[in-house]
Amino acid sequence: MELTYGNITGIALLLLTGLSAGLCFTWANAITPGIGRMDDLSFLRAFQNMNRTIVNPLFIIVFFGPFFLSPLHLYTLKNVSSEVTLLLIFAAVCYIGGVVLVTIFGNVPLNNILDKTDLSALSRENLKTLRASFEDRWNRLHLIRTVTAIISFLTLIITVSQSTKQ
């Protein structure tokens, strides 16, 4: 395989989308169900701590990489079929709409509310209320992110197989 700018952006896009899909899957499959078994205070503290540590340079690269690489990769491709182009557009729309926008407008506002809360100052009843207003909604939004990240990743894998046929 000749290493071209299009190949490099495609490999990076595939890798970062796969890492994001894996991250979302791991949270949905193990992390949130695991901490979901905790009492209200422990759950909320664990979530605060995870939210405070996950936003780091490596996470930013993995999470926002596909957002920037999708249009760049489409731009670099010259002689691909319209089928591959449509698959790439579909993968981008899934990732940008279902992962990035849902995160920014859904999960992050919930995370910010939780982050600003002094949990030690809340009564048991207030902790229960906060958790009830946070957990189910956050998990529903995260399910959207998980499914769309996986669909985007799978679609990119399909584009690789379609591209190699040309």
Rank of each mutant, 00 (worst) to 15 (best):
D40Q: 09
R124I: 13
D39T: 12
S133M: 03
K78N: 12
T164R: 15
R145H: 07
R37M: 09
R137M: 10
L122I: 14
V160F: 03
L122W: 04
T146N: 09
Y5V: 14
I104N: 10
S81I: 01
L119H: 14
F59G: 03
L88W: 03
E2D: 07
F64I: 02
L88H: 13
N111S: 11
L72P: 05
G97E: 12
V93T: 09
S123M: 05
D118W: 06
T32F: 15
D39S: 07
V84L: 08
S152P: 00
L86V: 07
L101E: 04
R137W: 00
S81W: 01
T4G: 06
I61Q: 00
D136K: 08
T17I: 12
A121K: 15
N49V: 06
S20N: 04
Y5T: 12
N79Y: 11
D118K: 08
L72Q: 06
C24Q: 06
W27P: 00
N112G: 01
S82Y: 04
L119T: 10
I157L: 15
L74Y: 10
Y5E: 06
V93L: 14
I61S: 03
N107K: 00
A132F: 07
K78E: 14
G18V: 11
L69H: 10
M50Y: 13
A28L: 06
L74K: 04
L88Q: 12
S163E: 09
I104K: 02
A121Y: 07
S120G: 14
I157R: 02
N49H: 09
E2W: 11
D39G: 07
A132P: 08
S161V: 12
G34F: 12
S70T: 15
E135W: 07
N51Q: 05
G36V: 02
K78D: 12
T17V: 12
F90Y: 03
G10N: 10
S120T: 09
L3F: 14
M50V: 05
S152I: 08
P57R: 04
L23M: 14
L86N: 14
L143K: 06
L14Q: 00
D136T: 14
L44W: 09
L154C: 12
R145S: 04
V84F: 04
S163N: 08
P57W: 13
S123V: 11
L15C: 15
G6F: 01
L72K: 04
L69A: 10
H142F: 13
Q162G: 03
M38D: 09
W138V: 07
N139F: 10
I89H: 03
G106R: 00
I61E: 02
V108I: 15
L16Y: 07
N111F: 09
S20T: 15
K78A: 03
L77H: 11
Y75K: 03
G18H: 04
L101H: 04
D39W: 06
F105R: 09
F90D: 03
I96V: 15
V84E: 02
L3H: 11
I104E: 11
A121G: 07
F105K: 12
T117R: 14
D115E: 10
